[in-house]
Nucleic acid binder design. Structure first.
Lengths: 257, 257
DNA sequence: GACATATAGTGGCTCACAGCCACTTATATG
DNA sequence: CATATAAGTGGCTGTGAGCCACTATATGTC
């Protein structure tokens, strides 16, 4: 990998007057001397509540777009965040108290008009958290925070509606060929529960036998040995195996029923 | 370590005193008052030359990392680029003269250490261009520019090797379930040529019949009516249809001899 | 305890499509 | 005209999704 500490090979005088070492160059370099866009990280944090796919929204307490609903997010803390993922984790923790859910970078949106403060760039992530963590929502910043069913979200600040659409789309398409939704369930779950989550995200029914074959054959979950009692036949409980829902199927799941 | 021009200006107590309109807020807002990361756009521009997948590299003429090979890229021009994609297109045009190839955003990398100038963010794109455009490489900035077989790239400036790996990976995985490689071929091509490109990217052979069935059934290319003469049986020429290589298959292509 | 009911879970068929491989077709060349 | 070589096809096998009827196991009611 690149080594920054060392000087570049002394180039005998090229373009200009005298050669400059990288060290010299950096000594006089001031990032703030150059115009730069604003940079933020925004997140679509998904969970399933009451059989609906929901996303966490905050009502903006500050200008710009004050009073509008928006995806949680904010500026990178250049001192504390070691990388973009850390910024995302920090924001997630601030809003939900949850620490290490599934987190995936989706898209970076940047243009001159999406934020009235000027040229701005935002890196959008989506996160999946289990619905047994829902009550953990904290409320630091006197902002209003809420879960909204994704189907009921009609407008958001900035271009957040578009970002949300992209995140939702990414989630939906990955559900066709991965087992991502396990991250939306608590530590143990039944196959029917898992199937229901798939159906909620896909927006259509999934054929039971095909679904179970697929999940079992993929060897991504294992029986806990426990059963979930109910009003009828009890169901086996499962937990994610080795690499959770990060299995890729070579064929897509699609229709059914 | 990173040097920032100014410390963050403490907001003068707004909430408490009097309400402020967004207009007022914006009037006094100066983006440059806040520390912000550097933001660049970098690209992996792919083509196939001499039966090898190649990527365009430039030798850096300026500090930092002067003299090292890097992916082409650079800062956003806040005045001229209307969005990130425009920056990418501009960079692509500068280096290759090509204007509208296939372009896809891959990943955004940002952390405190990837650039010695400080906290920096880069948005990485990959582009596919046809190998009949190869000669169009311009050389504006007295930088050295070259096509390197991807297998021979062992080190690059900054974290560009990692970015390249991500772009390469994205390309390879999409080749399993899309017809992206048509963008790497000239306007007309034979099925065998197309298959060869697939094989080069995948790094393994593809079964002829399965490949042809897949492409033909997908209805993404059409016969031109012309034939390509050769030393043996002439081959039908095809051109991309409606939406080029942007078709998604529901099953992956994989192995075969 | 017998039975109804409801959900969990299985057996076993069909169908689409990737992999396989031998076969046919069309051209250049000696 | 025979041969070599690459283009292109026929037709089988295997995998895994879709389908749907069937069995299994609990609760609730009488």
């Amino acid at each position: 990998m690149p080594v920054y500490g060392k000087l570049p090979q002394p180039h005998k005088n090229q373009e200009n007057s005298m050669p400059q070492t990288e060290k010299d160059f950096l000594k006089h370099y001031r990032a703030s001397d150059y115009p730069a866009p604003l940079v933020t990280v925004d997140m679509a944090i998904f969970t399933v509540l009451d059989d609906q796919l929901c996303v966490l929204l905050v009502k903006r307490a500050q200008h710009p777009a004050k009073g509008q609903w928006a995806l949680p997010g904010g500026f990178i803390n250049l001192e504390e965040d070691k990388d973009l993922q850390a910024t995302a984790h920090r924001k997630l923790k601030e809003k939900t108290g949850v620490d290490a859910p599934y987190l995936e970078q989706v898209i970076t949106s940047g243009n001159a008009s999406r934020d009235p403060r000027g040229w701005s760039v935002t890196i959008a992530y989506f996160a999946l958290i289990a619905n047994d963590n829902n009550d953990l929502i904290a409320d630091h910043s006197s902002e209003e925070v809420t879960w909204k069913p994704i189907s009921s979200v009609e407008s958001l600040a900035f271009d957040h509606l578009e970002l949300l659409a992209q995140c939702h789309q990414r989630l939906r398409s990955k559900v066709h060929y991965t087992a991502l939704p396990v991250h939306l369930l608590p530590a143990t779950f039944t196959l029917v529960e898992l199937q229901t989550i798939f159906e909620i995200i896909l927006g259509n029914k999934v054929e039971k036998k095909a679904f179970r074959r697929r999940i079992i054959d993929a060897d991504i979950i294992e029986e806990t040995g426990e059963m979930r009692a109910g009003v009828t036949r009890p169901a086996k409980l499962y937990r994610p195996k080795n690499n959770g829902g990060n299995h890729y199927f070579s064929r897509a799941i699609e229709g059914g029923r």
